[in-house]
Structure formats: structure tokens, C-alpha cells
Design a protein around this nucleic acid. Structure first.
Lengths: 243, 243
DNA sequence: ACCTGAACACCGTTCAAGT
DNA sequence: ACCTGAACACCGTTCAAGT
């Protein structure tokens, strides 16, 4: 959407906040979040570190810009199917987006940046939730809830990758190792961990994510039903309970 | 539980991994996660930074120890009430624990450390879930799900605290500021954000957390019911569907 | 208005050397 | 076996100075 950048060291164009953001994106992809420093972003732009501080208050602000840039590719799902399908697709896409870029979840995690891209997504999602029949307050709580779930999940999911996969161990190998470790626990004190060692260590993250997502959506459906039961329904008269 | 430590600079006792952990805990509480450096932990112990590397491979390993130490005070809830009540209490306590120590969620976030304290908690929770009637795989998925939710939620909850509260702005002030910002958006393109500005920015985190928790538990209850429907129930014979 | 040089006060980690 | 001095290769940030 905003400012393409393919050249490594643009000779003249003059720094822009957008250029800084794109450069940060490059460095992040190449070196991960631990390698993302102001100095590296600067050299990526063919410039000295101190120059960045003319365009950006500090690193934190650059990370805020980066966060919104990471959301730039997000596209809301088609407006088809019932609200459950649409919400599910929303979350699946959000997760896929976070997984598609290195350490994206870690960058986004716990940042409080209401960038333009995020705002558009929220606007769209809120619209669908209200259409589906959710009360205003519930719709607001719902978007927050789903955001927290996806972000929290991917964060936990993405980290073992850098922590132990950096040491050459693949995810599947880690899983079997942990499984063995759990099975070798003293059975008298940890009977459940021993018995469920395999269930606890399946490396199938898609399934784990889907499981939580379905529970969440079921729970929201229950809320919607109980909300409808309180309203006037054709043919049935339900007494309104005060407050 | 393990190794009390009250002296600031113990003269002789010789470093132990446990002493390092407790010192790290102190530094974390005092300076937050950004101020938590090997050098500061060392001086907390009256020792030079290089010394730490005899007891611990690197900072990452110290953070793993710290993570488990943060879980040390966790106590499983009483075994009373139905599974819903117990699970709810579990999550409330988990959140309270994370909130009770500075930047705890950030330390724990995305760390893959199965320390002894966490193992005990998981063992206990799995036991209750199986008692409640959850299938093995579902019980395993459930503990993971709840853990991800609580951790993800608190992470998002705790960060605005350090980011903007550090600048003297309280949470309530931030909320009203963001609310005003949302209300001032162009109404044609962001009608929902404008309309729900207040709902989206209530600073009542307890309520937000409880909302998600109830949806989650409702969703799990639905799963449990549908599981039971598939089993032989006294008086009713349900045909078993293969696979 | 925008960029740089040079400095400040920090980092994590290593390793020969001490005891 | 355990701790230190000294160094290495980095950080984020500031600020006078250049253009």
C-alpha cells in the first residue's frame, strides 16, 4: 500500500518515516527481533544511526510504526457464510499473517499502537459482530478477546522456533524430546502428565489453534442465544428482567 | 519454597543458581524487564558479571529459571464446586499472579520452560479436567488453551502500564484519551469505532478478562456435552459412529 | 531542515589469569 | 572449583557541529 522500497541503499531520496519502517521490516526479516537495532536500520538506509532520531522520537516509536506495517497485508475475509464462519476466517488469517513474518508476534506483543491498518480491521469486524446480533458492549469485548487469543497463541507458538530451532532442533524433534521427558516423570506424583505425554506434545499447532477457536466461537454463540432469549421473539413472550 | 534471601550482599555463601534466581527477581521488581541485566544481577549479589557464567550458560537460561520462580507462589484452587468454578478460579489466580509481579507476563511470554512449578500445576489441572469428563486429548488441548489465553491477555494488559504510565498518564487517562481519539474519527468510514468508542476503551480489565473466560468455559462445556451425547447414557442408547 | 562525528553510559559474553 | 580483569563487539541516545 504505502511506499514500495526495493533498493538497498537509495542514494538521495531523503529519509521518510515510511522508508525507516520498510528498512526496519527488512532488518527484522533478516536478523529477527534480537538483531533489530537502530544502527542496523540506519546502515540499511545508507545512513548513520543518529539520523534516524530526526524522523522518529526513539526506537519504541519505530517499533510502533513497524507494528502497523506488519498489519498492512491483512485483508478481511469475504462477507459470506454466517458470523461463525467469518469470525473463524478472521482469526485464521490473523494468525497466518503473524506467522508469515519473522518474530512478528514478538514485535506486536503488548504494543499499544492503534495504527490505521488495525483501525480498519476493527471497524470491519465490529460491523459484522453487530450485524450478527451482538450487543455493543459484547461486540467490543469480543474483538478484544479474539485479538488477545490470536496474539497470545502465536506468541507462544513462534518462540520455541527461535529458541530451540536456532540450535538445529526442529519442532517435531523438540516435541518428541519433551514427550519422552514427560513420560520419564515419577508416575506416582505425575500420573496425568505421564499418561497424557503424547497429547500434550503434539506439534500440530493448527489443531491446537482451531480447538481454542472453536471453543471461543461456541462460547460466543451461547452468549448470542441467551441475548436473543431476553428479547421479544415472534410467537413467544419472554418477561424482561430488570437490570 | 526454595532458598530464602533477604541480605543485599551476602558476604560468603557462594553463588548458587537459586541465589542468582532470587537476585534476578529483585532486579526485575526494582527495574523492570528492561533494567534486568546480567551486570545488575551480579552487583545485586556483590559479584562481577563474568561470575554468573559459571552457574548459568547465558542470560536466556537465567530467564528460564526466573520464569519458574515466578510460578513458585502459584497455588491451585480448592477442589470444591463444579469443574467450571475450579477452572475459572484457576485462571483468575494465574492472572493475579502474573499481575502481582512487575513485567511478569513479559518475562514468561513465549518462554518454553517446563519448570517444576509449572509441571505441578499442569498435573493438577489435567487431573481435574479428566475428572470432569474431558477426553485425554481435549484435556491436554484445554490446559494449553487456557494458559495461552491468560498469558496473552495479561501481556496486553500489562504493557500499556509501563509504556504510557511511565509517562505519568494513568490507565484511566489513557482510556479517555483513546476514547476521544476514536470518537474524532471520520464517521462515514468508521461508524462502528465512533459509536463504540466508549465500549472499546473501558479500562475495566477484570471485566474484559472475565468475559473471555466465561466464553471459553461455555465453549468447553459445549464440547463436554457433545462428548457425553456420544457415550452410552443410562436410559438412552446412542448409536456409536465409527471414528 | 536534515544529516554526521563523537561521545556517553550502557549491554552480553569470552577467556586468560588468579586463588 | 569458583571468581575476576580486561577486553570485544555491540547497544540506544544526545548534541554540538556541519551543510
Amino acid at each position: 500500500m504505502a511506499g514500495e522500497r526495493t533498493d538497498e541503499h537509495p542514494p538521495q531520496p531523503g529519509l521518510t518515516r515510511d522508508a525507516l519502517t520498510q528498512a526496519a521490516l527488512c532488518v527484522l526479516e533478516r536478523e529477527g527481533i534480537n538483531g533489530l537495532s537502530m544502527r542496523k536500520v540506519a546502515t540499511e538506509l545508507g545512513v548513520k544511526a543518529a539520523s534516524l532520531y530526526w524522523h522518529v522520537r526513539n526506537k519504541e516509536e519505530l517499533l510502533d510504526l513497524l507494528t502497523d506495517a506488519l498489519m498492512a497485508d491483512a485483508e478481511p475475509p469475504l462477507r459470506q457464510g454466517d458470523w461463525r464462519e467469518q469470525l473463524r476466517e478472521y482469526c485464521l488469517r490473523h494468525r497466518r499473517l503473524l506467522l508469515s513474518r519473522r518474530d512478528a508476534a514478538k514485535v506486536v506483543a503488548g504494543r499499544f499502537a492503534l495504527g490505521p491498518h488495525l483501525l480498519s480491521l476493527m471497524e470491519d469486524q465490529l460491523d459484522r459482530l453487530r450485524d450478527a446480533g451482538f450487543a455493543d458492549a459484547d461486540a467490543a469485548l469480543c474483538t478484544y478477546l479474539l485479538g488477545a487469543y490470536v496474539q497470545g497463541f502465536v506468541l507462544q507458538e513462534q518462540v520455541p522456533i527461535s529458541a530451540s530451532e536456532a540450535m538445529g532442533t526442529s519442532r517435531a524433534e523438540v516435541a518428541t524430546a519433551v514427550s519422552a521427558q514427560l513420560r520419564s516423570l515419577p508416575e506416582e506424583t505425575f500420573p496425568n502428565l505421564v499418561a497424557l505425554a503424547d497429547d500434550l506434545t503434539t506439534p500440530n499447532m493448527d489443531e491446537r489453534f482451531a480447538f481454542g477457536l472453536e471453543r471461543l466461537i461456541d462460547g460466543l454463540a451461547a452468549l448470542l442465544d441467551q441475548g436473543r432469549a431476553g428479547r421479544a421473539v415472534p410467537g413467544v413472550t419472554v418477561p424482561e428482567v430488570p437490570l
